[in-house]
């Protein structure tokens, strides 16, 4: 087999992804490049923080029953993570092509996986259908935990699910509502109806925020 030279597979906003050969394994190198618009100090802080936390969260997610690529190496100096390459297709494309029935079952499964993350106190931080890959064994892998965090706070879970909803609305607006409904159904299978009610209430609260608040005082001491 020819040795694979690293080549760019995705120029993202936050990081570039390269497909590469690493000791005979097909891997993805995720490199967070410096951002010129930020002051370099802030830029280094942000990139280092995300490079350390992302692999930790991916590992935790895997332990919690959510498929994620295996991490091989974290190169902090270069803000680079080397991880397993997942063969498959992004859900972003699949949802659009799928039949109504397939779409429902995919979304149900997505909901279950988000439920498992949250049950284990993992917040993904960027739940979009571009960050989910269906492999040939019909397993959905979650990737890109760069904006994630570990917390059991209701607020964070609410924001996480709210992001999923918003991502569906902006990318899959034709069937966003049905999709989100199925996601919530899958989610409640894992977390139970009571927890889900609380989280849905939270989402409504979040949605009411942010736009036109007449007066707000800083919560200072």
């Amino acid at each position: 087999m020819d040795k694979l030279k690293p080549f760019l597979i995705k120029k993202g906003a936050e990081a570039n992804l390269y497909l590469a050969d690493w000791h005979g394994k097909k891997v993805v190198m995720k490199k967070r490049s410096p951002k010129k618009y930020r002051p370099s100090e802030l830029d280094e802080q942000v990139r280092a923080y995300r490079t350390i936390h992302e692999p930790q969260l991916m590992h935790e997610a895997k332990k919690g029953g959510v498929p994620t690529p295996t991490i091989f190496l974290v190169d902090l100096a270069n803000a680079t993570i080397i991880m397993e390459f997942i063969e498959g297709k992004q859900l972003k494309w699949l949802l659009g092509e799928a039949t109504e029935e397939e779409r429902q079952s995919l979304c149900l499964k997505i909901g279950e996986l988000i439920g498992r993350l949250h049950k284990n106190g993992i917040i993904h931080g960027d739940l979009t259908t571009s960050n989910m890959i269906l492999n040939p064994d019909d397993k959905i892998f979650f990737v890109d935990f760069g904006l994630g965090e570990k917390t059991k706070e209701l607020e964070s879970k609410g924001v996480d699910l709210h992001l999923m909803k918003r991502a569906l609305q902006s990318t899959h607006f034709r069937f966003a509502e049905d999709c989100f409904e199925a996601v919530v159904k899958g989610y409640s299978k894992v977390l139970g109806a009571k927890n889900v009610r609380d989280i849905l209430d939270k989402i409504r609260e979040i949605e009411r925020r942010g736009r036109y608040i007449a007066e707000r005082k800083a919560k200072s001491e």
Partner: peptide
């Protein structure tokens, strides 16, 4: 001088209330 303040990006959304509180404190 850059003083460390909360940098909060969630997906494509942002949050400024924690940043404001920290800065005011």
């Amino acid at each position: 001088q850059l003083i460390a303040l909360p940098y909060t990006v969630k997906g494509m959304d942002t949050s400024f209330s924690g940043l404001l509180t920290a800065a005011v404190n």
